[in-house]
Amino acid sequence: MEAILGILISALLTQNFILVKFYGICPFMGVSKKIDTALGMGMAVTFVMALASAACYGINLALIALDLEYMQTVVFILAIASIVQVVEMFLKKSVPALYKALGVFLPLITTNCAVLGVVLVNVQQGYNFLLSTINGAAGGLGFTLAIVLFASIRERVNKTECPECFKGFPIALISAGLLALAFMGFSGLSIF
């Protein structure tokens, strides 16, 4: 239980996937212009990250058994790509409402390094099946938290005046920097 709580706190706050570890910056900058799209992306990423963590735990066991550990990167990314594809097809057929909400984000997730990142971290840390899945889900929630906060800042920033050459991405990056500064405050936080 302690381990689970520790993973949750660290994935959400102290080791936030985006603002501290820099995984998944591309969608963070790309899909954060509006709060509701940011939330949709966050949910889709969380879903895929949890699934990928669970699946890759099994795949990694198989790779170790076959003595093929050097194939990890190749196999993991293929697994992630297939998971995204399957999830997309499944949602389209069975849960059209959810597909409507998340569908456009799904293809982008394959190349979201948060997903491959969490899988590789799980393997490095030697997490068991439960902890891997929780770490995946918690990492996704951390991603959602950061991207929604950032989108709400950006909605306001875009309405304000700023020097010509800072328009667009530079000012967004600087706001992200300030958000990261705020999250640094959590770094001293430790339980147990």
Partner: peptide, 14 residues
């Protein structure tokens, strides 16, 4: 630290 990464990239792009 992360803060510096965001700020520096912002200024470099600007």
């Amino acid at each position: 630290m992360p803060v510096g990464g965001f700020l520096t990239l912002g200024f470099v792009i600007a």
